[in-house]
């Protein structure tokens, strides 16, 4: 029992360290990729190819004045960024990140908490993640903030429905909520991937995943052109940074979910071992998010709701119906 606890604590710390480092690295990657797509070089001068820009940004964030507006509710204002970051990492707890491997003679299962309802737990935690932006917007005495949190509420609530319904069809196929079962179901090559059986569910999940991580076509919560920075208007320094660590961690989580549920997870692919296969898949999804950001414009809030309730949700329900009839 104590061994289990120690192992879990070590795993949690390792996951936290690696993913938050990756989240920081994600900002660098995002700037670089967006720059390349716009035929620019991006950050170049801090370190080789600008890679130490992360460190520079980190130092800047840590040393910035930690500012709390006088009218704000101080406690909630301070808690809100923690909620975003924490829920993003808690969601990762139920995600099997890599296949099992041996280290110093111990079999390591790279999943912090192997729940048999892993998928549901991840969705639930990402749903709870809406409290970060929501409370942040309400706690600061700022109209942009309150508009941002109103948009958070509608966007997360609506797209949670689509996420859930789109994942329901693969769940019906696999008959389990455990992400490891999903992975094992798709063992044995590309032909067994669920994406071929559930292409519609895959597309719906991607769209709603973009909405839940508030990536570009749907980043209405902090759309600079309309509402300054939305819920993050009054934040500065590391509190602001927490929101973005949470956002990038969520992007990674969505990447993992999409690859585990639809794209064969960490099963070996041709000659590529499973661990590298899933890293490649997650990197592809991360790249896709940046790629889409560079290509597509924002949509209006009413279009967001139109898309969710009049297009995606009916499609998801029809998809479930067809899956139920066929399977």
């Amino acid at each position: 029992m104590s061994g289990f606890i120690i192992a879990t604590v070590i795993k949690a710390i390792v996951v936290l360290a690696i993913i938050s480092a990756l989240a920081g690295f994600g900002t660098y990657i995002e700037r670089k990729i967006l720059a390349f797509i716009q035929r620019r070089l991006g950050p170049m001068h801090v370190g080789p190819y600008g890679i130490l820009q992360i460190a520079a940004d980190g130092i800047k964030l840590f040393t910035k004045e930690d500012f709390i507006p006088s009218g704000a509710n101080r406690l909630i204002f301070k808690i809100a960024p923690l909620i975003t970051a924490a829920t993003a990492f808690i969601a990762l707890a139920a995600v099997p990140l890599l296949p099992e491997f041996h280290l110093f003679g111990i079999t390591v299962r790279p999943i912090v908490a192997d729940l048999n309802i892993g998928l549901l737990f991840v969705i639930a935690m990402m749903g709870v993640g809406l409290y970060g932006p929501l409370l942040a917007g309400m706690a600061q005495e700022n109209k942009w903030g309150i508009i941002g949190s109103a948009r958070t509420a509608i966007q997360f609530l609506s797209y949670e429905v689509v996420t859930g319904l789109s994942l329901l069809a693969p769940i019906m196929l696999v008959g389990s909520l455990s992400l490891i079962d999903f992975n094992n179901y798709q063992a044995g090559g590309i032909a067994n991937w669920i994406v071929w059986k559930q292409p519609l569910a895959f597309i719906l999940f991607l769209i709603s995943g973009f909405a839940e991580t508030n990536r570009t076509p749907f980043d209405l919560l902090e759309n600079e052109a309309e509402i300054i920075a939305g819920y993050a208007t009054e934040y500065s320094g590391m509190r602001w940074g927490m929101f973005f660590i949470g956002e990038y961690a969520n992007m990674i989580t969505i990447g993992f979910l999409a690859s585990l549920v639809f794209l064969g997870g960490f099963n070996p692919l041709w000659i590529i071992p499973g661990a590298i296969a899933i890293v490649l898949k997650v990197s592809f999804f991360f790249f896709l998010m940046l790629w889409v950001r560079s290509a597509w414009p924002h949509i209006r809030p009413d279009q967001l709701m139109w898309l969710c309730w009049k297009v995606l949700m009916p499609l998801a329900v029809i998809n479930i119906l067809i899956t139920g009839l066929v399977a």
């Binding site: 797509i37 035929r39 620019r40």
Partner: peptide, 19 residues
Amino acid sequence: LKVTIREMFKALFGGQMHT
């Protein structure tokens, strides 16, 4: 998406970086 990725490849491998 196609246009943006094309521009990226042009910039990275086609020597058309504007910076």
